[in-house]
């Protein structure tokens, strides 16, 4: 009887024993789709292994915020060397935690549409929030938020309290409507079919036809183009501009492998690693590489919006409350 229990347990733990090698191990805390079999993570890991004598271990969480929370919870006990994947809206919180050390890398190589000056976190990809629609079902997409609230179009968005994309919408609306954001949410709420916990539920509902548009990224159509050879999906182009999401990585203060971590971050923004970003993470790379042809067909907003991270840190909760008030 004991054997029946012990053997399966042993088999569960077996993969872990692979970690018991002598090489230095770089623990990277990240969100799971980055490290998933089809994500950019495994390929970058493979390339990096060629130039370093080390082992990369991805420790994944359901989202980038959870990965940050994990490091905060673990405090001094954390084994994390690098936090990878938090976005510009939460960088203020992460910097404020005092858990990260300066990356010391030259940011001039980095190619993002706005100025990036953080000494703690380096960008490794970016994208723009946008509403995605199916052009066979929606022939006249709105060309602004103003048009959207005057139309009878139904949308699906994510809850800003649980989803970075949903929080992005709060910031997007804030950066356009400023002190009138609350009134705008009141007008937007009747258009919202449902507000999901995360991006994946909302995108699924949209693909099943539950709404005319879904909040996602301008780069989402590239997935359908490249993987499914499906060109029905487009991003609605909003004249007020599109809010940006910049994904960043930073080194944890308590890391014992800071040199190695720095080496990895330098590699992460190099062309060798960045080539995996467009079709792995479905975002824009920060290095000047040749993009897949389908990416050049995408709509790329010329009016990027981005709020200051300290401003977000100070007011994020208030803005969420404004959004919630819009539904009362």
């Amino acid at each position: 009887m004991l054997r029946i229990i012990l053997i399966p347990l042993f088999l569960i733990f077996l993969p872990l024993s692979a970690l018991a090698e002598q090489k230095p191990v770089l623990n990277i805390y990240t969100y799971d789709s980055f490290a998933a079999e089809w994500g950019a993570g495994p390929k970058i890991k493979q390339e990096f292994a060629k130039i370093c004598d080390c082992e990369i271990n991805f420790v994944t969480s359901p989202s980038s915020i959870s990965a940050l929370r994990k490091i905060q919870l673990e405090g001094e006990q954390t084994k994390a060397d690098i936090l990878l994947g938090i976005d510009s809206s939460i960088v203020g919180q992460a910097q404020n935690s005092g858990l990260f050390t300066k990356h010391g890398l030259d940011l001039s190589e980095i190619n993002v549409p706005t100025n990036w000056s953080s000494k703690y976190f380096i960008p490794f990809d970016y994208g723009y929030f946008a509403f995605i629609y199916n052009r066979e079902k929606l022939s006249k997409p709105p060309s602004s938020f103003a048009q959207l609230i005057d139309s009878d179009i139904k949308i699906i968005v994510q809850d800003g309290r649980s989803s970075t994309v949903g929080f992005g919408l709060i910031l997007w609306i804030k950066s356009i409507y400023k002190e009138k954001a609350k009134q705008f949410w009141q007008k937007l709420s009747p258009k919202i079919v449902t507000m999901t916990k995360g991006w994946s539920e909302s995108y699924n509902l949209f693909l099943k036809g539950e709404a005319d548009m879904v909040l996602s990224y301008t780069t989402s159509p590239a997935y359908h183009l490249i993987v499914e050879q499906d060109n029905r999906f487009r991003a609605a182009q909003f004249s007020e501009g599109h809010y940006m999401q910049i994904e960043v990585a930073g080194i944890v203060k308590t890391s014992k492998n800071k040199q190695l971590a720095r080496q990895f971050l330098r590699f992460l923004i190099s062309k060798e690693a960045q080539q995996f970003i467009p079709t792995g993470n479905w975002m824009y790379p920060v290095a000047k590489i040749k993009l897949p042809e389908e990416f050049t067909k995408l709509y790329k907003p010329n009016k990027p919006l981005l709020l200051d991270e300290d401003l977000i840190l100070q007011n994020g909760q208030i803005w969420i409350a404004e959004m919630l008030d819009g539904f009362k």
């Binding site: 799971d32 994500g39 359901p62 995360g198 991006w199 994946s200």
Partner: peptide, 12 residues
Amino acid sequence: FLASGAYRTNES
């Protein structure tokens, strides 16, 4: 959950 978070709705 992973598959649906990476556009792979059919697989999910």
